[in-house]
Amino acid sequence: MNSRERVLKLFAGEEVDRPPCFSGMGNVTTEGLKSLNQKFAATHLDAKMMAAAAASTYKLFGFECAVAPFDLCIEAEAMGCEINVYAHSEDLLYPTIKKKLIHNEAEMEIQIPSDLTKRGRVPLMAEVIGLIKRDIGKEAAVGSYVLGPFTLAGQVMELNDLLKLSFKKPDKIGKLLDLLSDVIIQVAGEYQKAGVDYITVREMGATSDVLSPRVFKSLILPYLKKIFEKITVPNVLHICGKTNDIVPFMMESGTKAISVDQKNDVAETRKKVGPKTLVFGNYDPYNVLVAGTPDLIRTTIKKCMDDGVSAVWPGCDIWPTVPADNFKAMMDEVRNYRR
């Protein structure tokens, strides 16, 4: 069973020999960039470089997937936001939104550009997915991600306004989330056409650290349902931070799998959702994988599996500076694990 088969079987609900060790979020490493002689800032705008960087984690460490893009700006950029890739920087800075689309409540009546999927880096992403598929697509699962509607709203408008209006004027925010769901469905559709094996919807703005479970259910869940109805490839809903209280709502979204981070008590979640539900998680990709010792990594990864994750999967993007020995320790622990 190769990595791609293992991941696809897992999504299909079939028997797998062991939990796969993969991710639906960014996992490019500085080791990988070094092996390609590439700078992080340059990878965001060049299809060949992005594809090569995305595939490098599989090639170097046997991580069982390749995921692109590496930043969270694709949809917002296609909608007309300006982004900053920090081209000058030698550091590992992820692109951010420089100029929002909506600056105040009065500007909330926006339209989806008719040529949305031709704008920004959406065509580049389709090209990247094609390149990765041709490179390692038979051996490793190829994934991509879109933002959830609330998280995307936080990219196109001021987060401060978004949060307050969610409380004061939920109807207005609901209307925006509905429109952004259509944006997300269109972008995810392009990724599907390009041949991705699975898509992760990252709705980290809606964590219970920020929003009450009640608001999550009434304001955000309906639009997540709308999105998952339209994604035809295997899919994952990722929410970070405190999520134990919203796990049932996450399941209600219609997603195939839920992804949670280190703040989730997975043993409790497993009890709640039963043995069949796909739960991915939940190691800390910085404090454990990057800053921890191989010993800490082994015990953490073992605990994830003991708690009952269906796949060993990070709580967020893997921070690139993960030492090679740490990555190997994780992969070994998963491969040698016996329940």
Partner: peptide, 14 residues
Amino acid sequence: AQEYFVPELLMCAD
């Protein structure tokens, strides 16, 4: 105590 979340916090700050 999770009676209030960030939106409420922001409005209280206002």
